[in-house]
Design a protein around this nucleic acid. Sequence first.
DNA 1: CACGCCGTGTGTATCGATACACAGCTAGAA
DNA 2: TTCTAGCTGTGTATCGATACACACGGCGTG
Lengths: 338, 338
Amino acid sequence: MREVARAAGVSPMTVSYAYSRPGRVSAEAAARVRAAAQALGYPGPHPAARSLRRGRVGSLGVVLGERLGYAFDDPQAARFLAGVADVCAAEGVGLTLVPITGAPSDPERVARAVVDGFVVWTTSDDDPVLDAVADTGLPAVVHAGPHRRGLPVVGIDDRAAATAIGRVAFAGARRPVVLGFPLDRDRARRLLTGPAVGPARFPVTRHRWEGLRDAWTGAGHAPEELRFAVCPVNDAGHGEAFTAELLRSPHRPDAVAAMSDELALGALRAVAAAGLDVPDDVAVTGWDDSDAAGRAGLTTLAQSLRRQGSRCALVALGLEPGDPAPDEWRVVVRGTTR
Amino acid sequence: MREVARAAGVSPMTVSYAYSRPGRVSAEAAARVRAAAQALGYPGPHPAARSLRRGRVGSLGVVLGERLGYAFDDPQAARFLAGVADVCAAEGVGLTLVPITGAPSDPERVARAVVDGFVVWTTSDDDPVLDAVADTGLPAVVHAGPHRRGLPVVGIDDRAAATAIGRVAFAGARRPVVLGFPLDRDRARRLLTGPAVGPARFPVTRHRWEGLRDAWTGAGHAPEELRFAVCPVNDAGHGEAFTAELLRSPHRPDAVAAMSDELALGALRAVAAAGLDVPDDVAVTGWDDSDAAGRAGLTTLAQSLRRQGSRCALVALGLEPGDPAPDEWRVVVRGTTR
DNA sequence: CACGCCGTGTGTATCGATACACAGCTAGAA
DNA sequence: TTCTAGCTGTGTATCGATACACACGGCGTG
């Protein structure tokens, strides 16, 4: 920039203003600066230097408790991120995905991220990146929990929502199953019976499980009758495989409440493949009301992850106050329940 | 950092080394530094300052010619980005999506991005962000074209691939239709007949169209018989709607070659809804060989966008030489063609 | 005619860290 | 005993820009 200033016959400050505040310099000076820049091949102010001096970077950090590629594999995460991206685009701010891998170096990667704030996708209670995010002192929001270090949380009341959808899913059922996410970072595939389900480390899993359990026991049933099928990955393939296995077992489920539409759609495929009828033989519910759920006629719990993503971004960019009211949800009854 | 140095009774350099090169300082000094940092609430080296001095940021920029949220809406882009993300995660580098909106300010947003290199998702020949990317002087790669400003391109030979899949799609057909992407940034939905299709500004659209046209005319048919249905958005809904409309017309298509699996799956839905048979009444082909295509038994052109994304990332991070050989593709024949 | 405001250019200090070269010290080798 | 090498700590210069305050001339106003 100094060289450009010399070539244009002006001071460095004039060059700086020519780029950052077009109105601050005369048209003539601006033209001279542009010409000199062109001649010297100067590409404009160095972004890192500008960030240092201005104290703002122009990018919002997003932390997914999972490995980075997860952002594009999990449809729920993608919907959420689309909402974050909407706000970023409107504000002219970049969206930086922090390269988390599950390794011990993750907190350091958070600390090194060149961003103005953080949005943390729902993670486990003991995730060390939460401390790393809080330690940066930058504005931050956690999506759907956990509550920690005073970080604001954006999300719905998962437990209440789960109770509501559970009542619909389990109506008239005798052998209900919850098809859900991992309880902790182990991500082990397994089948648990009600009381054996300890407190899950993932708040979303915990709240939804508790809500679904409440729906079952609240109807006067025994907790041991409700099972929890833990799918290691949130996609239709895993939901289908686990459901198929359960349908072949003697204790065949007659209601499947899934924690996502993807798992539920997999369950529907398994039920169809087994030659059974939905909802008469097996009732199925999902979670999120995605487009695919609508097309499949799935009874589901509607929430807008996209809107929640946008709200997170607004808070993390300091454009809205933190800890706002819980987001909305509602039960959408379609044809997969009795 | 100076204050931490004073509190720990060491020089600033020692503090710096304590963070960036743990082996460079004695265990005792490191401990003193950590303690002082803890006491003062020092969160570690300021990322922007470190970036300025080191000349490296630790983040890879990704430019999508579309609005930002597109990254999470288009499944093709998502697969590609997953490949980029794989490399970023392995290298401990962040992934920054540059907030493009289609407005004139886009080039400036590229110039302001705090990144170490750029990956540009396939865009139109005249997209101004290509110049902006080249002007930064940072390492950059363009996915699938256009070739401009000497930027390396990673992708397959779209034209040859299109010819190959076209031969399969159009075998025995008399009223073929290409179901494809927009020709230019207008994104207008329309139906063109062969010769009316001007040179598309999107290289991918252009190459695939030319290849498919070659397949048709190469079999001795007249170019006017091949139509091009331009879908404004790459998703199943648009593919379904446009195909349904064509199926209702008197000149009912008997072969649909789609430029993506999503469009093809939509076409399959439309054919089924019309009570017609695949492949006897209508042959359908896709492009990409996504999971859904495999499940649907779709004949398609297999390429790995994920691998291409990884290759782009490696080149843009300077870990591999630019302009490598074209990526691989092959025709996967399943049940939706004669 | 004096005054103050506006538009425009400049100098200085600083944002917060790290590369580099060098100095002191200890220990093992010759 | 001397020399070299390795370990550890420090001072200086610099990365590239911008905030801020000030200076200067023109001009409208009372």
